[in-house]
Simulated scan of single mutants.
Amino acid sequence: MQFLTSNKMADIVPNFFEQLDKKISQIEDKGSMIDLAKGNPDQPTPEFIIESLKKAVDLKTNHGYTPFNGKQNFLDAIARYYQRIYNIEIETKSEILTFNGSVIGISAIPQVILNPGDYVITTDPCYPEYYTAVSLAGGKLYQLPLTRQNHYLPDLSKIPHEIVKQAKILLLNYPNNPTGATATEEFFKQAIEFGKKNKILVVNDFAYAAIAYDQRPVSLLQIEGAKDYAVELNTLSKTYDMAGWRVGYVLGNESVVTALKKYHSHVYSTIFGAIQDAAVAGLDSDQEAVNHIRDTYQKRRDVLVAGLRNLGWDVEEPQGAFFVWIKTPAEYGGQKFAELILKQANVVVAPGIGFGPSGKNYIRLSLTHDEKILKEVIKRFSVLEY
């Protein structure tokens, strides 16, 4: 018997990255295929974090259930980290909640804030999971286009008044996936002022907090008064190459964190205690490993951008994250150009349409391969016929 599923399941679009995986699985010549579509870090987790995990696994205290909100040593380490890196004071008992990866926070925040029909304002393009998170909460999405002319920052003054009246969340993501843009302090000030004026929660998905190339990215919580109107999601996935470890957290506004704790205690599990102990080692370290990871991506960025520009491609240099956002030739949309690249060069890239309508004439390339492979990509692209 085939059971009917709920109406909300009909509104869920297929996972964009799962669809890319399926496409890759169908490729016959996988031996020479190069995957530049996904953002899965290729560098190993720093050895001192791995060693910390090995020791923590032997601790009996880590063999049982851990506290729902996170082990106290992990919460304290997060607070120390934000104090040291961003000069922000965080109250561990009321302003932090840990997750099995920050994507859980992306899903949970709409659940605890939205009523059916409420709007979330975000950008176009955006991280694809925002669509599903809002849909599952019964909300609606209003998207502001990101343009090169505006440095891929949304113009908050362009939001219609009727949308503002129905909005509960402004969801941002800087450093930005997929454009590689970073937010300025001035823009974040505008965002907090917007939230204050309209009683709207401001959220920054800070997944690429440590991956920026010219200067350290601004934390939304560095803005004066931000904790009254905002929360920030963060993760160890990109910062310490710990994507498979599933360690993330949210911090900021006490009332929102309190609601998330209540929700989280019913629908999600806790993080294995040994992994939390290893995360402490990363957060409390001198961050030299983080600098090495960032510098590696910067070298790759410089190689790929320079090579593509030499081919005459319209490429901007990303300021953050580890993606290159590329406008396709005028006669091609992103989907069609991605298919051409796969067919002629056996390179998988992400079509920009997967990130929103404004991405239809773009493709996204990932920097999660070493310079030798990126040079091979450039070589293959040099003989494309289009």
Rank of each mutant, 00 (worst) to 15 (best):
F355W: 12
R84I: 02
E193R: 08
V349Y: 10
I271N: 12
I88Y: 07
A289V: 09
N73Y: 15
L4N: 04
L220N: 06
E18H: 13
G307P: 11
K30I: 15
R380F: 03
I275W: 00
G334L: 11
T270S: 10
Q166L: 06
K168F: 04
K262C: 01
S6M: 13
N291L: 14
G307N: 11
R300H: 11
S265H: 13
K375Y: 03
Y142D: 02
E224G: 07
C126N: 15
N173F: 15
N100E: 09
K93D: 12
K227A: 01
E129H: 14
Q335M: 03
D277H: 08
A350T: 09
K360T: 13
E316M: 07
S157T: 15
E193I: 07
D155L: 14
N176G: 09
N150M: 07
G312R: 06
I78L: 11
V348Q: 15
E162M: 03
L311D: 10
D284E: 14
F17D: 12
H266N: 11
Y297D: 05
I24F: 01
E193S: 14
P125F: 00
R84W: 06
I326L: 01
I378A: 03
Q287R: 08
L4R: 08
N87L: 07
Q166N: 15
L153W: 02
S237Y: 07
G352L: 05
R246G: 10
Y263A: 02
S285Q: 00
M33R: 06
D11C: 05
L97I: 13
N346E: 11
S157F: 01
Y268I: 12
S94V: 04
F74S: 04
L221H: 06
K360M: 10
E288Y: 06
I121Y: 01
G312A: 12
D302G: 08
G225P: 12
Q319I: 02
D76W: 14
N198H: 07
P110S: 07
R309T: 02
Q19F: 15
K336M: 13
T328E: 09
L251A: 00
K165C: 07
K343S: 15
D155T: 11
L304A: 11
A212P: 00
V290D: 04
Q287E: 09
N62E: 09
W325S: 13
N173E: 13
Y127V: 12
L20Y: 09
Y142N: 03
F74K: 06
Y131V: 05
G64T: 14
G356I: 09
V267W: 00
V305K: 09
E47L: 12
G101Q: 12
R246I: 14
N176T: 12
K197Y: 06
Q111G: 05
F68P: 04
F48M: 06
D314I: 09
F188A: 00
V250K: 00
E376P: 06
F99A: 02
S237Q: 14
L156C: 03
V13L: 10
R246W: 01
P154N: 13
A278S: 15
T239I: 00
R80D: 05
N204Y: 02
A212N: 03
Y152I: 02
T235Y: 10
